[in-house]
Simulated assay, not measured.
Amino acid sequence: MSYTLSAADKAAAQTMRDDERFNHFVARVCEHQELWILTDEHGCMMLTSDDDEDCIPVWPHPDYARDWAVDDWSQCKPEAISLQVWLARWVPGMEEDELLVAVFPTADATGVVVDPYELKEAIERKQALGRRN
């Protein structure tokens, strides 16, 4: 179940730099054990990065995904993926399909585009830090 996102939180996220949104994404995903994608009747939505690479965009909360789903994406709905399923199935599958992850894109920024295993490592580092505290 997703947490409540305040208007102030949403506004703050829009002003973050890409690296800050990446770190915010990792922290929220570790805290809430889920992340969000956009889907339509054909499945998971993908985008093409500035470098012409196919990416799956992900967000830490459904409201961010919903805010991004405009124009060509207006038929899309946010869908939760548990962190456990993401790490076990999505990361290896994306790697096999040569897909990247667009972490926490906003209306005017693609987000940080990374290899799925890079994101997995960032999440695992954050989880390890959490266990030590």
Score class of each variant (00 low, 15 high):
10 K>N: 12
119 L>M: 10
131 R>D: 13
128 A>L: 11
87 L>H: 09
1 M>G: 11
32 H>F: 05
132 R>T: 14
84 Q>V: 14
34 E>C: 05
31 E>C: 06
105 P>A: 11
80 A>S: 15
7 A>E: 13
131 R>H: 14
118 E>P: 02
42 H>K: 11
113 V>Q: 01
2 S>E: 11
27 A>G: 06
133 N>T: 11
9 D>Y: 03
33 Q>C: 05
27 A>Q: 15
105 P>L: 03
56 I>M: 12
54 D>T: 09
74 S>W: 05
81 I>S: 05
119 L>Y: 08
129 L>T: 09
104 F>R: 01
32 H>P: 07
61 H>E: 05
55 C>D: 02
105 P>S: 10
107 A>V: 08
38 L>K: 00
82 S>G: 13
79 E>W: 04
38 L>T: 01
79 E>Q: 15
83 L>P: 03
101 V>L: 09
44 C>L: 13
48 T>M: 15
82 S>I: 04
129 L>G: 12
97 D>T: 06
4 T>D: 10
31 E>Q: 15
39 T>L: 04
36 W>A: 02
50 D>H: 12
34 E>V: 02
53 E>C: 10
1 M>F: 13
116 P>I: 06
20 E>N: 02
3 Y>M: 13
44 C>Q: 06
125 R>W: 07
76 C>F: 03
66 R>V: 08
30 C>H: 01
133 N>G: 12
46 M>S: 12
114 V>C: 12
33 Q>L: 08
